[in-house]
Design a protein around this nucleic acid. Structure first.
Length: 840
DNA sequence: ACGAGTAAAAT
DNA sequence: ATTTTACT
């Protein structure tokens, strides 16, 4: 792989509908020049929809032929995955992207029954029809756009040929996938931007749709060395406030118009413009304000989508990091869930970069020029650094996710996993001539679920959680299935078209635990794709990410491995989500059922092998003191009988299980602690209880064996008493007693009950504070009618101590119950009782 | 705007 | 008993 030279290469970043020319357009990144190159469609490509009405039927309906946007009909043949039949369809071709909507509307009534592929976004369709893959490298010669081919390394091809030796017809296809991952990922020149706005009301964020007040600062931080704050000169300007700042440049503007015009230069200059919440604030504000103060619209390169959700730049590309870093998949898989809960730039950058925003008490509008410059600059700096940390992980990840999903950079960074998988699936459908089913047709053919969920309101039965054996155990080995659900999807040929297929002879191929069956004649599309991605991750890129010596390549493989994980792990969930256009509950239900089947049969085998099982959840089994040979036998049995990889996940020096599921504490052989589910760990727990909890944990951490644990308990007892007394003597500050709870819906929609955090939020609202969905409400428990007060309104002497003692107790009982039980055996049960009663 | 299962507190 | 949140 040649990573040293990108000569004459262009990176495809975006495919979009260009409003000015009413055609599709492509945004490439010219790697050598560090600039965007825009190419407008010159192929005369026309949008279309597919209908199973015949040409005669359509002609009889004169509305369509008379419609001025209509161009012509074509006949196409497709494979219908729902009926397993070839079908002839009429392709209704429109004149241009603008008229496709009108053409569709002219036969809307007919299409409700018969249409297929009528609701698909034009630029997605264009992406496939032109055979272009966003995120890949191209050469542009005489108007021709040619993919730069990187052949996979020989060792990689050999390995994958070995893995697929029983399915040789799939080898060519998987080699195409390898090209996506072997093509190098170039760095992209980019600039982060953040604005500050004057506001006469201290607590109000200015409304960007009105933009009543001036922009007073624009901070910029770029990959090629721009470190700058543009500032508006207001009254009382004092240059001396700025003399000490030497880590970045400050440029003072006499007029706001000049300041905005200078900002616009950067928006046109840099290929990628990064913001944090620019879709909803910064870019919207700049545009509104620019027009308001009389800048000609032609000079403003900021455009909005019709729903006002997306701020696009005419000549370059805008990425809103707020959306991307708050994407669930990104948070969980790519970034190891290191910033759970937080959504703000401050919280996210603290978690990922270890530094947060500049703390300030003075409202922005009252800051000195020096304070404002420092504050504003840090925001742009953090925004940029979110794309730079971990050796440009962000850029690598985004480009690889684009290659897998076939989405443009602006679509990818703004949409969630279901849109990514939808785009991937649609692309594959087109590639192999499959008709894309309409969601209502899909449900009609595949039916509903047949099992009953344990949780009210859920659609089908999920995973098994084995009742834990309470007590303390030394030497516990945890085995788990390597990506259980994706493995099951691959192994059992699960896909929306293969589950409950039309062939009578497949009906006997039952899925255990359900009334569904799966096709024996055709390979399922989802099964094939998820199988590819899984195999590439497990057999190729996970090993390469570890052993590759060249840092550049190693970083790329690491990003490949993580990007694959994102898709693989979400592949099951989307089929059970109504919002997914290939929603197919039987697929999700079969996946979960086969997961249960896998763990249940493995459990049976452990008892054959006489390995004691202490606990298990979904895809894991906790084995007590297992002999290594027996684990080997178990792993072999699973491989032979279930064709799933069972792996040793972790080994505990000791593990304390309570009676509660998903609730335990253990110490690994390397001394690291593992805590699951205990309230002491949870985000909403007050700091004072949390810190006591962690102090106790670190005492336990030192214990090597059961005897040590006994001594540890004594220490814990003393520590707990101390803290209890602190509470009673009111030696704690309000801050340490705060509960943090997120508001999951708008305040007005809490109608059934009024939880405590809602009470506190309403108190704040009364004082004129705006409260939004997702806000973390901080409150303390007090002795009053409501029982709670927002922390801002409370005094230390109002605190309801009893409530806190209760909370302290439940937190500690979770640990002690587990420890106590084995204590019962050693010291008798009085010990624990005395310990707990001593607390209250 | 990705699934189901579990725990705990307040109402 | 139900609602709500946090977590696996």
């Amino acid at each position: 792989m040649a990573t040293d030279s990108y000569k004459n290469m262009y990176l495809l970043l975006s495919i979009y509908y260009d409003r000015d020319s009413n055609r599709a357009a492509l945004k490439f990144y010219d790697i050598e020049k560090g600039k965007i190159k825009i190419i407008k469609d010159n192929t005369g490509h026309k949008p279309y929809l597919l209908s199973d009405l015949s040409i005669e039927e359509l002609i009889n309906n004169q509305d369509i032929v008379k419609h001025k946007g209509f161009d012509h009909f074509e006949i196409v043949t497709k494979y219908d995955p729902l009926t397993d039949k070839k079908v002839k369809l009429t392709k209704v071709v429109a004149r241009d992207p603008l008229s496709i909507g009108g053409v569709r509307n002219s036969i809307r009534e007919l299409l409700k029954k018969h249409s297929w592929e009528a609701r698909i976004k034009y630029h997605h369709c264009y992406t496939y029809d032109r055979g272009l893959i966003p995120g890949m490298l191209y050469r542009i010669e005489n108007g021709d756009i040619k993919l730069v081919e990187y052949s996979p390394e020989k060792s990689v091809v050999e390995k994958i040929s070995l893995v697929y030796k029983n399915e040789p017809d799939l080898i060519d296809e998987i080699k195409e996938w390898i090209k996506l991952f072997q093509t190098p990922v170039p760095d992209i020149r980019r600039i982060a931007l953040d604005i500050e706005v004057y506001s006469p009301q201290v607590d109000r964020i200015p409304n960007p749709k009105e933009a009543k007040h001036p922009i007073i600062a624009v901070s910029l931080y770029s990959s090629d060395g721009i470190r700058k704050v543009l500032m508006l000169k207001r009254k009382n300007f004092d240059e001396s406030e700025l003399v000490d700042i030497d880590s970045f440049d400050i440029q003072i503007f006499e007029s706001e118009k000049d300041l905005i015009l200078e900002t616009i230069k950067y928006l046109n200059e840099y290929p990628l413009v990064l913001t944090f919440n620019g879709d909803n604030f910064d870019l919207l504000y700049i545009r509104t304000r620019a027009l308001k103060i009389g800048i000609n619209e032609d000079l403003v390169p900021i455009e909005f989508s019709r729903d006002m959700e997306e701020a696009r730049l005419k000549n370059t590309i805008h990425i809103d990091l707020y959306k991307f870093f708050n994407n669930r998949s990104m948070r969980i898989y790519a970034f190891g869930n290191r910033y759970q809960g937080g959504k703000t730039l401050d919280e996210i950058s603290r978690a990922l970069l270890g530094e947060g925003k500049v703390e300030h008490e003075t409202p922005i509008s009252q800051m000195t020029y020096g304070e404002l410059a420092l504050y504003s600059f840090r925001d742009a700096e953090l925004t940029y650094k979110l794309t730079e940390f971990d050796d440009n992980l962000f850029i690598r990840l985004v480009l690889l996710l684009m290659r897998i999903s076939k989405l443009s950079i602006d679509d990818l960074t703004r949409h969630n996993i279901s849109a990514w998988i939808k785009s991937l699936m649609y692309f594959e459908h087109r590639k192999i001539g499959y008709l894309i089913p309409n969601p209502d047709e899909l449900i009609r053919f595949k039916g509903k679920t047949t099992t009953k969920a344990l949780i009210k309101g859920k659609k089908y039965l999920g995973a098994i959680v084995i009742d834990p054996v309470p007590g303390i155990f030394t030497n516990v080995t945890v085995v788990d299935f390597a990506s259980l659900y994706p493995s099951v999807i691959k192994k059992w040929n699960l896909s929306y078209e293969t589950v409950n297929c039309v062939h009578p002879e497949c009906r006997k191929n039952r899925i255990p635990g359900t009334s569904h069956w799966v096709c024996t004649k055709r390979k399922g599309l989802t099964s094939k794709l998820i199988g590819f991605l899984r195999d590439l991750r497990v057999y190729i890129y996970k090993p390469l990410a570890k052993k590759e010596l060249k840092p550049e390549l190693r970083h790329q493989y690491k990003a490949v491995e993580r990007a694959l994980k994102v898709f693989i792990n979400a592949s099951y969930g989307v089929f059970g989500a109504e919002t997914f256009p290939l929603y197919c509950p039987p697929v999700a239900e079969c996946t979960a059922a086969l997961g249960r089947y896998a763990i249940a049969s493995t459990l049976k085998q452990t008892s054959e092998l006489k390995i004691p099982v202490l606990y298990g959840d979904t895809d894991s089994l906790f084995l007590w003191n297992p002999e290594p040979e027996k684990i080997e036998m178990l792993i072999k049995w699973v491989a032979d009988n279930l064709s799933i990889d069972l792996e040793i996940d972790k080994v505990y020096k000791w593990l304390a299980l309570s009676e509660r599921k998903k609730n335990y504490i253990g110490v690994y052989t390397d001394g690291e602690v593992d805590i699951k589910g205990l309230v002491g760990k949870k985000r909403n727990t007050p700091e004072f209880i949390k810190s006591l909890f962690y102090d106790i944990v670190s005492i336990l951490q030192k214990a090597e064996n059961i005897e040590d644990l006994e001594k540890a308990i004594e220490e814990i007892k003393i520590l707990t008493r101390e803290n209890y007394n602190k509470l009673k003597r009111k030696e704690l500050s309000l801050d340490q007693l705060v509960f943090h709870v997120a508001l999951s819906k708008p305040l007005s929609s809490y109608t059934k009950t009024t939880p405590q955090h809602v009470k506190a939020a309403r108190q704040l609202e009364k004082l004129g504070k705006t409260i939004d969905v997702g806000d973390i409400i901080t409150y303390v428990k007090v002795r009053s009618q409501d029982g709670v007060k927002a922390v801002q309104l409370a005094r230390i002497d109002e605190i309801d101590q009893e409530k806190y003692v209760e909370h302290l107790k439940t937190t500690l009982v979770q640990i002690l119950e587990a420890l106590g039980i084995s204590f019962d055996e050693i010291l008798g049960s009085r010990h624990l009782e005395k310990f707990i009663s001593g607390l209250v």
